[in-house]
Simulated scan of single mutants.
Amino acid sequence: MKVGIAGITGKFGHLLTTHLLEKDNVSIQGLCRDPSKLPEEIRSSPSVNLVKGDAFDDTAVRSFVQGCDVVVCCYLGDNKLMIDGQTVLIDNCDELHVSRYVASDWSLDYTKLELGQLFPKDPMIHVKSYLETKKNVSGVHVLIGAFMEVIFSPYFGLFDPKTNTFRYWGEGDEPMEGTTYDDAAKFTAEVIVDRNATGVLRFLGVRANIRELARTFEKVYGKSVTLERYGSRDELYKHMHDLRSKNPQDIFSYMPLFYYYYMINGQTLLGPNIDNARYPNIHPLDWEGFMAKWAAEELPASYNALRN
């Protein structure tokens, strides 16, 4: 099986490549702007061929797609890249009869959202609809909840490593779903080599609320934590829209709040059925297993690290 990975040099593309190379009879065709960003062991692998080019270089994209059995998009960027860049890939897959296209989805179940609610997921809604118009290529959508590493990141703002404080909106009993980057890559690798895997597939590492997360932290690290409540879900909704209205260009001041709101309001939860049982060889980490891999002070930077 020849697997095309667009955006192979990114964190997720790198992890996915690593897991695919562990499988028999899989070769990889990677699309990237700078092959030097990949480690030498991947660049020099006889099972890997790299095509240099960007997402809008139709000649490079067509060369990349040619001969692939399945193409995976690992792009992460603005709406132009996530919609128009994927359109270029999808059109070439359709024309060249690539049987499956794994869209750049993963975090949260955006299929339960309306356009405009969680604006960073709007491109995924557009891409899913576009794939449904194609005759020769089937869409594959892997959903995993939130990436666990991101929940601890400074970007998300829930955890203060200096004071071991967990800050939250809501009542503190709202379930949050998470899967590690590496487990998400493992599940995606299984989906890729499973020729019958199409449509929406949902995989989950753990479901827990912020209070349970704090208790797990105390158990793993033997450190006391503080829980600090920002306000209600309704107050969060108003706050995030106020920030966006007052300064729409400062996207990182409010985008994490939009993600958090739609995580805890229940709308984007996976299920009621998940597909973990489809690949019983994968045993995803829960919060305790995840924390056991990191020193407490490393948690905020875990989203930047590559660790299997």
Rank of each mutant, 00 (worst) to 15 (best):
A6I: 05
A6H: 09
I8M: 13
T9K: 05
H14V: 05
T17Q: 10
E22L: 03
V26S: 01
G30V: 00
L31H: 08
D34Y: 13
P35D: 12
L38R: 06
L38I: 08
S44M: 09
S45Q: 11
P46E: 14
P46D: 15
F56P: 03
D58F: 01
F64G: 01
V65M: 05
Q66N: 13
Q66F: 06
C68N: 15
V71K: 03
M82A: 08
T87G: 04
H97R: 15
S99P: 08
V102H: 02
A103V: 02
G116I: 02
P123W: 09
I125E: 12
K128D: 11
K135H: 03
N136G: 04
E149H: 06
V150D: 12
I151S: 05
F152Y: 14
S153H: 12
P154Y: 15
G157N: 01
F159L: 13
D160M: 11
N164K: 12
F166C: 01
R167F: 03
T180H: 03
A185K: 05
F187M: 00
A189H: 03
E190A: 04
R195K: 10
T198H: 13
L201D: 02
N209Q: 12
R211A: 04
L213W: 07
A214P: 02
F217K: 08
E218P: 09
V225C: 13
T226C: 08
T226R: 15
Y230F: 15
S232T: 15
S232C: 11
S232H: 13
D234I: 05
D234W: 06
L236S: 06
K238S: 11
K238L: 07
H239W: 08
P248W: 00
D250Q: 06
S253E: 07
Y254M: 00
Y259P: 00
Y261C: 02
Y261L: 14
I264E: 11
N265L: 12
G271N: 06
G271F: 05
I282G: 01
E288P: 11
E288S: 09
M291Y: 08
A292V: 09
A296L: 11
A305R: 14
R307Q: 06
N308M: 08
